[in-house]
Amino acid sequence: MGGKLTNTKHTLVALVEDKPGVLNRITSLFRRRSFNIQSLAVGGSEHPGLSRMTIVAVGDSAQIEQVRKQLDKLINVIKVSDITEEDMVDRELALIKVKATASTRSEIMQIVGIFRANIVDVAPGSLTVEVTGDEDKVNSLLGLLSDFGVKELSRTGRIALTRGSSS
């Protein structure tokens, strides 16, 4: 199939029409062709009526090229690119509800401070932490906080843009 045959994580960015059923068409394609998707984030873009979608897919380069081409065939997909090899900014947001007691609260707050994360909710037995960053950063913070006991976790999945003025 050419290219690298090792499985790697790829970031695909798609500009799609914001119409009913478009997300269904895209996820249906992933399911039908057995594409392995790790995360999918979708929201508004700079164009009214168009959404930007960031897809993290795992596979070898030939499989990812198939994902890209098949997505590109969907009528509601305006443009799709694999930006993995490009200079890009990628971010993820996570909300982490961590167990906190009187004795651990300050230690947790210290870790949160180091990661430049925020505490967005305080309750008698827990703290909720909001963290933004690339996946490694979120994973590291999560690793440290898991020692205290993570009660709930919600991650948005990756969103990404290429750097520089090109679009």
Partner: peptide, 12 residues
């Protein structure tokens, strides 16, 4: 005519 057929089953 369909770019998605290229490399789908056979190395081209």
């Amino acid at each position: 005519i369909d770019p998605a057929e290229i490399g789908k089953n056979i190395l081209t």
